[in-house]
Nucleic acid binder design. Structure first.
Lengths: 364, 364
DNA sequence: TTCGATTTTCAAAACGTTTTAAATTTCGCA
DNA sequence: TGCGAAATTTAAAACGTTTTGAAAATCGAA
């Protein structure tokens, strides 16, 4: 491996000048810069990252910790995130160190990684409301960025979508089509995003003067089988008049709903409207559903570049308050939603108390 | 952060002695060693890994590259591997840098990671027969260890199970129970492990004087739905006399097979014996199947410590030839296998040419 | 010319550790 | 008491980079 010294002695220059030349400092003569560049290229010089990091005090590595949960819900999204993240971090000259841990105390794995002393910061995924990890890392003054939001503290960097709006937009579209009995298959309520969608759903329904029996607003893992079994129960009529529309927290759940509808000989969208939020995972393309799925869409992949940039900016000393981004998912109307069927225009008869409003992250 | 210098000046010793004391060198006085230890503990000293690595020429980071394939088959196993690996590497003071890449040329992502110049070695997963990555890394003299085997070159480090034996043991058990029509739901034949199992299956069947129609020895993703659909087809009788036993490459596939059997009112093991290879993923516990599944078992998790150790040893200069380990999966007979049913004692009538023997890694 | 300003280059320190070679201390024994 | 050997400690170099403060070179104008 060629070093700065090799280049400098080859050219009769000092290492300082060579370093400056290669790092684009303005004070080096254009002529020398070119000579240096040429020799560096010829020698195949690559700066030694370890040495760079010793002197700058940075490691250039950021950490991410995956929780293994028994339902494995995060998996489909997890690789997608990693893929985008490693690419985006690479652009900013950083690498991703991964750990998987299932300690019951969520901060312990972070503490352990921190002890190893090689990380510049963290990316936090799947935040829960009032996430203890956020509190912990803020306290320790470790840079971190959250994918999504949690109400834990005020001033942390995050990037995510407006999940209240995701659900509210879905409800809005469906009520505009005349639907009154709208069921909701939410994600895991332990997670902040599902709490926010719960709030958005309740708000949206309330705004339309509607309520939902508890049996028709449920939460669970983001899986096809969960969608299938819950939709089957809801559409069978056992739980009460069946919904004319079902809003799903993921396209995977929607796939299960579609299958349940097919099993019950219900046509989509004539008998049942189905919509979902779409993370745009390459494996489950909403547009390839039959019929193509109406969705609120926000590719997970698109979150990776801003997440990486926020984190690196933070490490470079930016104020976390300036690194709080929330975007709105795009509403894409396709063929899985349609006007309410004639016989379904009544709201649910009994109006039991809706679930109490849940805490959620601030919107916008 | 406390440094060696802090400790040495506190004690009036040289940094050299302090370094030696903490690293357990024999020539340091037991008395001083204790004083140093005490002060280091009190100051909360942690060696600066970056500095250590600059002088030792090691980064302490090893890389792993995940391929995103459209069927996502590796996912369930992937997190499990990462989990075990990060823990095992941590024991040896190393960290795991992860990248995800879907370049069509499998060596490109390795080349890219190598260019970044911070890795001491790689862990290769999901090898294919004659894996080009193995050739590439061998050529570049980059330390690496393979999880599994591939026939690419002779002298590389690996740890894996004997997949020929996995299938052969399964067939052996089933033929001992009198089964003659044994179907095989193999994994993806692009992967080396599936090739080996294919060979083991063919060998085992041949040894019992049996052949299998092509339609009853198939390969595909390691998913429940694949198991379900293929088993449904095989058990319907459409493809010929239905098998009395099905050997599956994973418990997930077996889950699908069980569901198909239930849908067709076939009792396991009375009407159909089912067995599988079990990676012991925490999510799909073979013992919790109804009935509990007969398996060849080899916890993926167990492979992680030897994989990590092999790699670190290799980086420390060990000869790859001494780091080639193949273990045999444990055969666990539970309740999903039983004697062949009365009416199923005939082998498949026509004996079409079995698939040609495929290349496989050397056994043992 | 010569001076001051500007541009360009340089030597050296710094980052925190490991390791080499040499120096110092301790000890047993004559 | 003194000597050699053994035990213990030390100073200094090394790893490859960035950065500081100073020095040298160049230039324009008086």
């Amino acid at each position: 491996m060629a070093t700065l010294k090799d280049i400098s002695s080859e050219l009769g220059l000092s290492v300082a000048t060579v370093s400056r030349a290669l790092n684009g400092f303005p004070e080096v003569n254009i002529k020398t810069r070119e000579r240096v560049r040429a020799v560096a290229d010829r020698m195949g010089y690559k700066p030694n990252r370890i040495a760079q990091r010793l002197v700058t005090g940075r490691s250039g590595m950021v950490g991410m910790i995956a929780k293994i949960n028994s339902d494995m819900t995060t998996d489909q999204t997890f690789l997608e995130i990693i893929a985008g993240l490693t690419a985006a971090l690479g652009q900013r000259d950083a690498d991703l160190v991964l750990a998987v841990d299932q300690h019951e105390n969520p901060v312990v794995p972070y503490e352990r990684m921190l002890e190893r002393g090689i990380l510049d910061g963290f990316i936090l995924n799947a935040p829960v409301p009032d996430d203890p990890r956020i509190r912990f890392l803020t306290e320790r003054q470790v840079p971190f960025v959250v994918h999504g939001q949690s109400g834990a503290v005020e001033d942390y960097a995050y990037f995510g979508i407006d999940n209240v709006a995701v659900a509210a937009d879905g409800v809005g579209l469906l009520t505009d089509l005349g639907h009154r009995r709208i069921a909701f298959l939410n994600g895991d309520l332990r997670l902040a995003f599902a709490r926010d969608r719960e709030a958005g759903f309740s708000d949206g329904m309330a705004r339309a003067g509607l309520t939902v029996p508890l049996a028709f607003s449920v939460s669970g893992p983001s899986s096809e089988s969960y969608g299938y079994t819950r939709a089957l129960a809801m559409l069978s009529g056992r739980l009460g008049p069946r919904p004319t529309a079902i809003l799903c927290s993921s396209t995977l759940i929607a796939a299960g709903v579609m299958r349940a509808a097919a099993d019950l000989d219900l046509k989509v969208p004539e008998d049942l409207s189905v919509m979902a939020h779409d993370d745009a995972l390459p494996q489950y393309r909403a547009i390839e559903f039959t019929p193509p799925l109406t969705v609120t869409r926000s590719p997970l992949r698109d979150a990776c570049v801003p997440l990486a940039n926020h984190l690196i900016d933070l490490i470079d000393g930016a104020d976390p308050k300036t690194l709080q981004t929330q975007i709105r998912a795009e509403l894409i109307v396709r063929a899985s939603t349609g006007p309410v069927p004639q016989e379904g225009t009544d709201p649910w008869p009994q109006t039991p108390t809706a679930p109490p409003p849940l805490p959620c992250a601030p919107t916008r």
